[in-house]
Design a protein around this nucleic acid. Structure first.
Length: 675
DNA sequence: CTTACACGCTTTTTT
DNA sequence: AGCGTGTAAG
C-alpha cells in the first residue's frame, strides 16, 4: 500500500496566546479522574492533597497550574515548590504542553533555590548582601574544621567528634528547632562531655559565616524565615507577589519549611500542599510527616483531597506494598486500588552471597531485554550507595550500560572543588574556606602560612584594600607560587570582561600543573574539569553559576556523562532516596536483608525503623510490572560483627502467598561456592 | 613549617 | 576508602 494514499494525520499546533480565552481551554473532566478533578478545580484557600504512590500526583499538580492560568491567574504570581529543581522544570515544561508558553512565567524551584532568589533580592534588611556565597555540606565541614583548630579543640585528650558529625549535629538542631543539648544528649550521648566546646564551636561557626557573608544550606531557610518574620514590608511584598502557592512532596518538609509556607501565604492562604505521609523518608534531615498531619491545624480552613487510584503498578505489586505499610503506626488512611489486576507475582530471591545476587540481577536483566523490556525501564534500588559496588563491577563485566544516581556527586570531587574555590574567592573575597583551599595548593604554603595570610587579608584599618590587593603585595616579595596565583586571580577576576566559562578556563590554565602534581590519575580528572567548562558555558554571570552549582549539583561524573553520549538506554542504579517520584517497568530491590535494610543503624529507635519501613514502601511502589526483592545470605557484617541471613523484617508482614520465593542454584551443582 | 607517609578508626540516606 | 592523627625527614 502506498503511504501517499492515506489521509495525512492532523496534528494541532496550539496558539501561545498571552491572554487566555474566557472559557476554559482544556477538558479537565476528560483528562482526570473524579478525585484528581476535585483537587485541580479546588477554589481559593488552603488545600491538602493526600496522594498515594502512583496516583497521578504530578499530573494533578500540572493540571492545577494549568487550571489556574486558564482561569486568568497571572502565571508569575504562581509559586511551585518542588523537591528538586529538575522536577520543577519538568512539571513546568509539561504544563507548557497543556497551556502554552504562559507557563514559563510560573516561578518554580526548591525551597532552597526560592530562598536563594528571595534573599539576594530582599535580604539587605537582615544584613545579607546580594553577593553572598552558598556553602555546600563539604564547605561547611571545612569551615567547622578550620574553626575547631583555631579554638584549639582538636587536642587529643578525649575523642572529639569529627567535622562531619559536628555539621550533622548543628544541622539537626537547626532543622528540628531543637537546642544543641537536646540533640547531643538524645542522639550523640557518647559526645555529651564535649557539649560546652561544641556550643562554643557552633557560635564561632555562626559568627564567622555572618562576618564573611556565607550561608550554608540551612541558613537559606533560616534566613528566609527570619526575613519574612522581621520585615513586615518584605512579607507583604512577597506574599502579594505569590498569590498561589503549590508545594510538592510536603511529607518531606521540616518545621522551618512549613513555617516559611505559612508566612509566604500570610495575606491570602492560597496554599495547596501535596504529599503522601507513607512516603516520608527525610526525617534524618529534620523532615517530619507531622507537617502533613498538622496542616489542618496550621491552616484551619483547609480542605482535604485524596488521590487513591494507582495508575502505576499491578495489583500483585500493590498487595505487597499495602502489607508492608499496614504496620505503620500513624497515617492518613487511604485505600489504594488499581485497575491493572493481572501481573507476575513479585519474587523474593535468596542468593548465596553478594556476588551471586549481582550475577542473578545481571542475568535477569539480559533475559528481560530479550523479552523486550528496554534497559532504561529497569532499575536497581538500594538503601545505601555502597550496596551497589559489587553489582557495578558485574554489570561492567557483562557490558551492560548503567547510570548511578545518588551517592557521590561530581561537584564533590576534590579537583572540581579546587577549581571552584578560585572562582569563589573572586566572587566573595571574604570566603575564608575557599581562600584556605586555594592557598594550601600553593607550593610551600601549609596550614600555618595559609591562616596567617588569610588573617592578614582582612586586617582592620584599610577597608579600601581588598584581599586580592593584599595577596598581590605579599606575592611581590614571595616565591613563584603566590605570584602565579595572584596573576591567575587577576586575570580570571575581570568580571566585566569575561564569561563564567572563560573564567573557568583561566583558572584551569593555572591549576593544571597543580592537578598533575597531585594526582596520578589526572587525565580522568581533566575530563571532569572540561565538563565543568561546558556547564559554565550555560551561564551569563559567575554568581548564578556558583549558586546553581551549590543548589543543584550535577550528579554525574564523567563516566556517567560518557555513557549518556554513547547509548541512551541504560539500567538505572539508584538509592531509594534518589528514586523518589520515579517509576520503572521492572524494579530490583537488592540487599533486602535484615541489618542492611532496615539498616542496623536504625534499630535503636522506633521512629527510625518506621522511616526504614516507609523507605521500603517507596522502593516497592516504584515498580509497574516486575518486582524482584533479593537478599544475600551468609554475609558477614563488620559493623555489627554478625552474619546477615534473614530477609528484611518488613517482609514478615507480607502474606507468603503474595510472593514467589526463588532459590538460586549454581550451574553444575556447586551450591556452596560462595558460602 | 611543610610534606609525606603510616596507622587506626568509622562507614546511610541529601537540599 | 577516607579522615584524623602521629611521626620523621627536608
Amino acid at each position: 500500500m502506498n503511504e501517499m494514499d492515506r489521509e495525512p494525520k492532523s496534528y494541532v499546533l496550539r496558539r501561545a496566546e498571552e491572554n487566555g480565552p474566557s472559557k476554559l481551554s482544556l477538558d479537565y473532566a476528560q483528562a482526570l479522574n473524579a478525585q484528581q478533578l476535585a483537587a485541580v478545580t479546588a477554589g481559593d484557600g488552603p488545600a491538602l492533597v493526600i496522594a498515594g504512590a502512583g496516583s497521578g500526583k504530578t499530573r494533578t499538580l500540572i493540571y492545577r497550574v494549568a487550571y489556574l492560568i486558564d482561569k486568568g491567574i497571572d502565571p508569575s504570581s504562581i509559586l511551585l515548590v518542588t523537591f528538586t529543581r529538575k522536577s520543577a522544570q519538568e512539571m513546568l515544561n509539561r504544563t507548557g504542553l497543556l497551556i502554552g508558553s504562559r507557563s514559563e512565567r510560573v516561578f518554580g524551584g526548591t525551597f532552597h533555590s526560592v530562598a536563594n532568589t528571595l534573599l539576594r533580592q530582599y535580604g539587605r534588611s537582615i544584613g545579607i548582601q546580594p553577593g553572598f556565597t552558598i556553602l555546600d555540606r563539604g564547605d561547611s565541614e571545612d569551615l567547622i574544621s578550620l574553626l575547631r583548630a583555631q579554638l584549639g579543640l582538636s587536642e587529643k585528650d578525649k575523642r572529639f567528634p569529627r567535622k562531619g558529625t559536628i555539621a550533622e549535629m548543628i544541622s539537626k538542631c537547626v532543622n528540628t528547632l531543637q537546642g544543641l543539648d537536646d540533640v547531643v544528649l538524645g542522639e550523640f550521648a557518647h559526645f555529651s562531655e564535649h557539649l560546652e566546646d561544641l556550643d562554643k564551636l557552633w557560635r564561632a561557626y555562626e559568627a564567622d559565616k555572618r562576618a564573611r557573608q556565607l550561608l550554608d544550606y540551612d541558613d537559606l531557610l533560616v534566613k528566609l524565615r527570619e526575613l519574612l518574620s522581621t520585615d513586615e514590608a518584605v512579607r507583604q511584598t512577597v506574599s502579594h507577589r505569590f498569590r498561589y502557592i503549590l508545594v510538592d512532596e510536603y511529607q518531606d518538609t521540616n518545621r522551618l519549611q512549613a513555617d516559611i509556607i505559612r508566612k509566604l501565604a500570610a495575606t491570602h492562604d492560597n496554599v495547596m500542599v501535596v504529599g503522601d505521609d507513607s512516603q516520608s523518608i527525610y526525617a534524618f534531615r529534620g523532615a517530619t510527616f507531622r507537617n502533613i498531619m498538622d496542616f489542618p491545624t496550621l491552616f484551619p480552613e483547609s480542605r482535604l483531597y485524596k488521590l487513591e487510584e494507582n495508575y502505576r503498578s499491578t495489583q500483585p505489586i500493590l498487595n505487597v506494598a499495602n502489607d508492608v505499610i499496614r504496620g505503620a503506626s500513624e497515617k492518613y488512611t487511604k485505600q489504594l486500588f488499581t485497575r491493572k489486576l493481572d501481573g507476575p507475582l513479585p519474587a523474593l530471591v535468596q542468593a548465596a552471597g553478594e556476588n551471586a545476587q549481582s550475577r542473578f540481577i545481571t542475568q535477569k536483566i539480559l533475559e528481560l531485554r530479550e523479552e523486550g523490556v528496554p534497559l532504561d525501564e529497569v532499575a536497581i534500588l538500594f538503601r545505601s550507595s555502597f550496596h551497589s559496588f559489587d553489582l557495578e563491577i558485574e554489570l561492567s563485566r557483562r557490558d551492560l550500560p548503567f547510570v548511578k544516581r545518588g551517592g557521590f556527586k561530581f561537584i564533590e570531587t576534590a579537583h572540581v572543588k579546587d577549581l571552584l574555590a578560585h572562582l569563589r574567592v573572586i566572587e566573595n573575597p571574604l570566603d575564608a574556606v575557599s581562600w584556605n583551599r586555594v592557598l594550601l595548593m600553593v607550593e610551600g604554603v601549609g596550614p600555618k602560612k595559609a591562616q596567617d595570610l588569610i588573617a592578614s587579608f582582612v586586617k582592620q584599618g584599610r577597608p579600601e584594600r581588598t584581599p586580592l590587593d593584599a595577596l598581590r603585595e605579599v606575592a611581590g616579595r614571595s616565591s613563584r607560587g603566590l605570584k602565579d596565583l595572584a596573576k591567575a586571580l587577576d586575570e580570571a577576576g575581570k568580571l566585566a570582561a569575561l564569561t563564567p566559562a572563560e573564567q573557568v578556563n583561566e583558572i584551569y590554565g593555572y591549576y593544571l600543573p597543580i592537578l598533575k602534581e597531585h594526582y596520578d590519575d589526572y587525565p580522568k580528572r581533566v575530563r571532569d574539569l572540561e565538563h565543568l567548562y561546558t556547564i559554565a558555558e550555560r551561564y551569563q554571570t559567575l554568581d548564578t553559576f556558583l549558586a546553581d552549582l551549590a543548589l543543584e549539583p550535577p550528579d554525574q561524573s564523567v563516566t556517567g556523562v560518557e555513557a549518556l553520549d554513547r547509548d541512551d538506554e541504560r539500567v538505572v542504579l539508584s538509592t531509594i532516596h534518589s528514586a523518589k517520584g520515579l517509576e520503572w517497568q521492572c524494579v530490583f530491590v537488592i540487599w533486602a536483608v535484615d541489618g542492611r535494610f532496615p539498616s542496623a543503624y536504625s534499630f535503636a529507635t522506633e521512629e527510625e525503623l518506621e522511616e526504614e519501613r516507609r523507605l521500603f514502601y517507596v522502593a516497592v511502589t516504584r515498580a509497574k510490572q516486575h518486582l524482584f526483592l533479593t537478599y544475600p545470605i551468609n554475609v558477614y557484617d563488620k559493623t555489627t560483627g554478625s552474619v546477615l541471613s534473614k530477609p528484611s523484617r518488613f517482609l514478615d508482614d507480607v502474606a507468603p502467598s503474595l510472593l514467589e520465593t526463588w532459590a538460586l542454584v549454581e550451574e553444575g551443582g556447586f551450591h556452596d561456592r560462595w558460602g
